[in-house]
């Protein structure tokens, strides 16, 4: 089965991940800009990072036949540094022109501070100005419900096209409000702190799947790129057809990401010969 990994932090992972993902059917990964585990001090560090994910990482993925795309943003944790954020935002548009850059992300909220909200608004404004897709991070654990509500309130006050916005890391307590507002919703599968593969399939069975994305967001912390494949196995185990799986784990990412013409992987239909 062909699989798209819509949210994956490749720079934090080894080439073995690429190799094993390729062997499991992954044909493309998308790498949003994220927190490095420490607060970067210089805008130039971000610029090098953006170059890494837009220029170098596609070559590493290509070694294994995987297409690599990226997103650029200042993540919410570092958005507390307003001076740094503003300077990175000033230079960010040049990276939106890169042939594998799909949009602005992951922006969003962490502790839902005013600085984070200001940065989220600034990112979305840039996306609107440059007609870009937006990937929005929602907070973890205890901050999730409040942070997601705040994200929705911020977006409601802006002239956004919900078709072009993916709100990520939804769980059972937040998914309904995201879908009701017309946005795409992403489930991130972590071993401990986010949604699980089985719960993701529960959610897929409960809600209309048209605007749902599933990803593993594997990074430098406790995470596993193959939680995505666990979700697929669970989905199929419950009797859903191969085509239904393809619709969710391959075609839905194509439908959302394909709004950017740089994404040229098309939805596929499984032949029943």
């Amino acid at each position: 089965m062909q699989i798209i990994q819509p949210h994956y932090h490749a720079i934090a992972r080894t080439a073995q991940d690429y190799e094993r993902m390729a062997m499991s059917g992954v044909v493309a990964v998308c790498e949003p800009a994220f927190w490095a585990g420490f607060d970067r001090r210089y805008p130039e560090t971000f610029i090098d990072y953006f170059a890494q994910i837009s220029e170098f990482e596609p070559t590493r993925a290509a070694e294994f036949g995987i297409r690599h795309y990226c997103w650029v943003a200042v993540n919410p944790k570092e958005a507390e540094n307003k001076e740094l954020t503003n300077e990175v935002l000033r230079q960010m548009p040049e990276f939106l022109e890169k042939p594998t850059c799909l949009g602005v992300g992951e922006t969003g909220l962490h502790k839902s501070t005013q600085n984070e909200i200001d940065a989220l608004q600034a990112h979305v404004e840039i996306a609107i100005k440059h007609d870009q897709l937006v990937l929005i991070h929602t907070p973890h654990l205890a901050d999730k419900a409040h942070g997601t509500k705040t994200v929705l309130e911020v977006l409601a006050g802006m002239d956004v096209n919900p078709d072009k916005i993916w709100i990520d890391h939804v769980e059972e307590q937040t998914i309904e409000s995201v879908l009701d507002a017309g946005y795409w919703a992403g489930m991130t599968l972590y071993p401990v702190t986010k949604c699980s593969p089985r719960r993701s399939v529960d959610i897929l069975e409960k809600y209309s799947n048209e605007r749902l994305l599933v990803n593993s967001s594997a990074d430098w912390g406790p995470s596993d790129p193959f939680t995505l494949q666990e979700s697929i196995v669970e989905f199929r185990r419950r009797g859903h057809s191969l085509q239904e799986a393809v619709e969710i784990y391959h075609n839905n990412p194509c439908r959302f990401l394909g709004q950017n013409p740089k994404w040229d992987i098309k939805p596929i239909t499984i032949s029943e010969e």
């Binding site: 654990l141 071993p191 401990v192 702190t193 699980s196 089985r198 719960r199 529960d202 069975e205 409960k206």
Partner: peptide, 20 residues
């Protein structure tokens, strides 16, 4: 705590799955 939280969520999800 977080691992226990995860495990309890799995139990809750299993019970919800049965109800559905």
């Amino acid at each position: 705590f977080l691992e226990a939280r995860r495990d309890l969520l799995e139990v809750a999800a299993m019970l919800d799955r049965y109800d559905r």
